[in-house]
Simulated assay, not measured.
Amino acid sequence: MQADISQIIISPIKRLILWLSKRNITKLEKEEDIEGLAEILCGTSGELRLDAALALGRIGGKSAMAMDSLIYALRDNERDARRCAAIALGEAGCHKAVTPLIMRLRDDDDGVRKAAIVSLDKLSDHEAVERLIDCLNDPDPSIRGKAAWALGKIGDLRAIDPLILGLNDKDPNVAYEANRALYCLGWNRL
């Protein structure tokens, strides 16, 4: 089988363009860059999305429009856009995003749910506790573990009984995270 010559030539060119794009996106930090970054986040695919989302997150402290772009991206049809937006909102410390992130805990995509949990963990908002407790019953053990740890870090005592049940999880990593979370909450097993 002979390789298509156009693929041999275009592939390195595409990689170079992607590399240059990534380098430039990380430098975008002005309010006038928001519209273009939002377009990249919701209008492209692949590696540039996370860079655009994180750039919006860096701008976020200076601009409500950047945060609004990320919150809007949480409803995008593409799971990568939702996941990247969730990550960036947590990194930016955007408390305005707590309710939209809580809604992403019911996303069909595991990666989006994990990113939402990690961001809610960083935001440490008690509003998320009930839905994080629900995540302790998720079929995916990594989601149950992340939810357990987030509950411990948030520090809400409503999580103690569900976390005690998590000590008996069939996945040892989940039980470990539940134990760590309980320790954070000041609960000691006798």
Results as ranks from 00 to 15, higher is better:
Ser6Trp: 04
Ile8His: 01
Ile10Glu: 12
Leu20Asp: 10
Ser21Gln: 10
Ser21Met: 09
Asn24Met: 04
Thr26Cys: 11
Leu28Cys: 12
Glu29Cys: 11
Lys30His: 08
Glu31Asp: 12
Glu35Thr: 15
Ala38Phe: 05
Leu41Tyr: 00
Gly43Tyr: 13
Leu48Glu: 02
Arg49Phe: 10
Ala53Cys: 12
Gly57Ser: 03
Gly61Glu: 11
Ser63Thr: 06
Ser63Gln: 08
Ala64Thr: 05
Ser69Glu: 02
Leu70His: 11
Leu70Asp: 07
Tyr72Pro: 00
Tyr72Cys: 10
Tyr72Arg: 14
Asp76Leu: 07
Asp76Lys: 04
Asp76Gln: 05
Glu78Ala: 13
Arg79Tyr: 13
Ala81Ile: 12
Arg82Glu: 10
Arg82Asn: 05
Cys84Lys: 10
Ala88Trp: 03
Leu89Tyr: 02
Lys96Asn: 06
Lys96Phe: 01
Val98Asn: 02
Val98Ser: 01
Pro100Val: 07
Met103Ala: 15
Arg104Met: 15
Arg104Leu: 13
Leu105Phe: 10
Leu105Ile: 08
Leu105Arg: 00
Gly111Met: 10
Val112Cys: 05
Ile117Gly: 08
Asp121Arg: 14
Asp121Thr: 03
Lys122Gly: 00
Glu127Met: 06
Glu130Tyr: 05
Arg131Glu: 13
Leu132Val: 09
Ile133Cys: 09
Cys135Val: 04
Leu136Glu: 04
Leu136Phe: 04
Asp138Ile: 11
Asp140Ile: 00
Pro141Gln: 00
Ala147Leu: 06
Ala147Trp: 05
Ala150Met: 00
Leu157Asn: 08
Arg158Lys: 13
Ala159Glu: 04
Ile164Met: 09
Leu165Asp: 14
Gly166Leu: 09
Gly166Pro: 07
Leu167Gln: 11
Asp169Ile: 09
Asp171Pro: 08
Asp171Leu: 02
Asn173Thr: 09
Glu177Trp: 03
Ala178Arg: 05
Asn179Met: 14
Cys184Leu: 11
Trp187Asn: 02
Leu190Ser: 14
